[in-house]
Nucleic acid binder design. Sequence first.
DNA 1: TTCCCTTTGCAAAACGTTTTGTTTCTGGTA
DNA 2: TACCAGAAACAAAACGTTTTGCAAAGGGAA
Lengths: 340, 340
Amino acid sequence: MTTRVGIREVAKAAGVSVTTVSHALNDATSFRVKAATQQLVRDVARDLGYAPNKMASGLRNQRSQILGLVSDEITTTPFAGAMIRGAQDAAYDRGYVVMVVNSGLDSELENREINMLRQHQVDGVVYARMYHQSVQVPAELEGLPTVLLDAVTNDRSISSVIPDEVGAAETAVEAIIQAGHSRIGMINNMDDIPATHGRREGFLNALRRHGLKHDPRHFVIGQAGTPGGREAGLGLLCQPDRPTALFCFSDRVAMGVYQAATALGLRIPEDVSIVGIDNLEIIADALWPGLTTVALPHYEMGRWAVNRILDDIENPGVPAAQTQLDCPLIERGSLGPPPS
Amino acid sequence: MTTRVGIREVAKAAGVSVTTVSHALNDATSFRVKAATQQLVRDVARDLGYAPNKMASGLRNQRSQILGLVSDEITTTPFAGAMIRGAQDAAYDRGYVVMVVNSGLDSELENREINMLRQHQVDGVVYARMYHQSVQVPAELEGLPTVLLDAVTNDRSISSVIPDEVGAAETAVEAIIQAGHSRIGMINNMDDIPATHGRREGFLNALRRHGLKHDPRHFVIGQAGTPGGREAGLGLLCQPDRPTALFCFSDRVAMGVYQAATALGLRIPEDVSIVGIDNLEIIADALWPGLTTVALPHYEMGRWAVNRILDDIENPGVPAAQTQLDCPLIERGSLGPPPS
DNA sequence: TTCCCTTTGCAAAACGTTTTGTTTCTGGTA
DNA sequence: TACCAGAAACAAAACGTTTTGCAAAGGGAA
């Protein structure tokens, strides 16, 4: 292993002082070095394979160029991957890098991990949740630029980015209506979280906008997972005046409805159309037929959060903002015209 | 925002020199400070909320306490989350923190990202793949402690950890045999990767060990995803002497077989038993009945990789090793006795 | 009391950058 | 020729730690 090449080696090789090298490489500092010299230094640096030591420069400028990303639970869904990738891509574009920590539900551990991030002098922290929810940000983050990802908090002083739940549901239900349905059911989640309320509201909005009646018997509330969807689906679809289309709280719920429909001998979408939310590809692509669904913009939220935090860092004092991102419809094959 | 409290503030508050503070806090350096003083210093440090600046200490000891984790694709499956969490947990336990970068399939980008990690002086790199495969490690990693995660390379000088593919398949097929089956089929993957060959070998091993004949018509090769499984499943299950149990290359393939079985009016497990590999909970838990499968130890591989790399760092010169981790059977409901 | 050893604490250097004076050089003007 | 302005390069300090080499203090033995 060759000994690391530092700025002094470059200086020596180029026959100039370290100051000149520094100026030549960070051309920011207004022209204190002749263009020719600058070029020379850069060539030498490249030839030597010089790479600046960010620990040293960070120490000097009090800026680590590192961002922290703390998340609750990252193993159960692929959403975490999308968020992390979005965050990391945005960070990379602006010369930053991301440190990921995750602590499950252990807030004691979370605090210690945030403390580690602080020790590494992270310039800011993205505080992420896997499911849109309301949180209280830990006191450990006090004084650090922070952005909430897929979460909101009472304290409006912290910027946050979340999916537009209402709009997502409206998009789904609009598509169902466009396909010609008028007897539309919904299977909602029973948890008291923003997603539950937002998607219900969007569902009702879309119906109202088209003058459709909302039949309370076609609106059921169940457990959020596949078994819950199966159960709710069985209940809904065995009714004689069953809905011709079902809007599901999530793709996993929709999978349960597929199972219910199959068990009842109903074909999708000929007998019943189904639309979900999440665009959980591993499920939506695998179902048969493919599940038409509304995508949650995890990747984009990750990007947005990092960009926002870097804006905050570079340009402090801009008031915090709560942002909602659009959720596009992803068409596969589970939405068709109603049976005649 | 209060001005950061450094070691000198602690020293002043405790009425000692910075040296003493340093010694008191890092008790490693053999007793140069009286026990009482040490206690005092520690109390003061805690009261002041002192947290050492790792950029400074890292610069001084040429050790950042940061590990890099570079992965190919982290958005499609939840496996990435498990690996990252395993890596991060292990790192945390030993006072390290993980920087995640991922570059999709763009090796140019990957190189630049590795270069960024180098600039941040990472002490080592975990080079991870989402699917067990053979790779060539980029030259950029030259000279950095590196461990391969879910990947192998011709160069035996780099340690790696992978799932025991052969053992995983044996576990699955043994379970099927224990349940009483003797006409057992397999749907394998068509890609030329270690997983394909290993699982085939394990399948054959288990059959041979129990003196069972291997009927070539019951061994089919298809696309790795759910559609491939569906297709292969349809072909296998409509044969008059169809197998009574099917071992699938992956849980996604198994999901396709569920669809095929349903389409053919076969019940699981009464008419046909199914076992997968992956323990992709989002699918295995959601299928109805739940899918009995063999778990790939992503979390454990993440832990193992980090621990190995930290061992290498603390104690260089230990020869590289290729490690295989066990894959436990996860029983749900898709494996039962054969139909009588 | 003196000497010497042990214990405890301190000052200073080093890690690899950036940046602020300050010096040296160049060439144009008086 | 002497002087000066401006351009170019440099030396040194600083960022917050750790660690080495020394000095001071304390205590036991002679």
